[in-house]
Design a binder for these strands. Sequence first.
DNA 1: CATCTTATTTTTGTATACGATAATTTCTAC
DNA 2: GTAGAAATTATCGTATACAAAAATAAGATG
Lengths: 217, 217
Amino acid sequence: MSSRAATRVFQGVEEQIATGQLKDGEKLDEASLAERFQVSRTPVREALLQLVGSGLATQIPKRGCFVKAPSFREMIEMFEVMSELEGMCARLAARRISDQQLAALKAANEGCEEAIQANDSDLYYHKNVEFHECIYTACGNSFLASETRSLRRRLQSFRRLQLRVRGRMPQSFNEHYEIIEALESGNADKADLVSRQHVMIQGERFNDLLVHMEQTQ
Amino acid sequence: MSSRAATRVFQGVEEQIATGQLKDGEKLDEASLAERFQVSRTPVREALLQLVGSGLATQIPKRGCFVKAPSFREMIEMFEVMSELEGMCARLAARRISDQQLAALKAANEGCEEAIQANDSDLYYHKNVEFHECIYTACGNSFLASETRSLRRRLQSFRRLQLRVRGRMPQSFNEHYEIIEALESGNADKADLVSRQHVMIQGERFNDLLVHMEQTQ
DNA sequence: CATCTTATTTTTGTATACGATAATTTCTAC
DNA sequence: GTAGAAATTATCGTATACAAAAATAAGATG
């Protein structure tokens, strides 16, 4: 956690976009943000630039920055890409994973199991990240790993909600088990397929959640 | 082309990294860059932030920015991801492409043919971009399209070199033809496979080029 | 002569100031 | 009363100023 003012502003605005406090299309006024975060315009502008870079805001020259929360369609698109990337990670990992890395993967999955037994969705969330992080490392392509990680991060605030959906944790855990099996046996095709489905199910769950939210509003 | 000073600096530095004038690890001194581009430090800092965002530079807090030219290994990794993304675009496009989009694709490919006959590698480069742009549009996933486009852009300066490699243009053209066939017949698997290979061949060509450069130095 | 401490300098990160352009308001003409 | 033009205001983009931290140089001590 950098103590830089610009980073604080960036993360603050990012958070507020994720939680919906800042809505799509809303203007990100430099002066207001500077006031809110008690800094000058300079770090605010740097934060805005980074937000534009990560796709959370749009910039219109001489007009300012505006929140660009992903639409429903864009979210689905991102899940579609995410499933491809996760599949690729798993496929490569099936060929390249070491015994040590496999052990770490199993350990992370045991952590997931403990979280389920404790019914601790927050712990599960973190252990789940650890699980996938093992696969990213094992895929042997650090560029792919970092791209996948960054997309995961971008979807994570929504993902966090999904895990609270009834029955998701045990199902997710079962999927993990299948992935481990595939990686252990070096079955790249199966690892790919299962991982893709693992993500797409989350995408569909996300869809469920959205539909539910629309219905209850 | 934006007339913004920050953009000018960004593109200038990007160019110099691509051409090798700025080497890996070299410090991007704010004052020097400001002097060189005849602007103040403010737009220089904005440009540096964007460079960090696009992975061309690293920032160490309170220490400054440093050029981070992709290593040989990273380039290979990027090609590996690129081939996956291109394959995905083609696979989706095979299911979703419209008659109109298919016509545009064929037109772009005819442009490629003309470029080959004129032996104009620069024209081929542009028509080739147009060809792939058609597929990105047709894949129906604009997030995927933009990610693929951005990775293509990142590899493009090297790609430009590759096309000058002897015999590459006609071969690339033949691969295009196969892609068109697959898309026209709605054969998603073939479209995926051929597109992947299309990129990986370029990656291998890139490898050849690097090896050649190392030998002649 | 080497090493640790301290002083100086450089450079980063942030604040403020200013000019230019777009948005808004006011005013005039019909 | 409305439409268009001019003036005003607000905001962006850039320049400069300043404070804090790190790098470097100088000096003292063993």
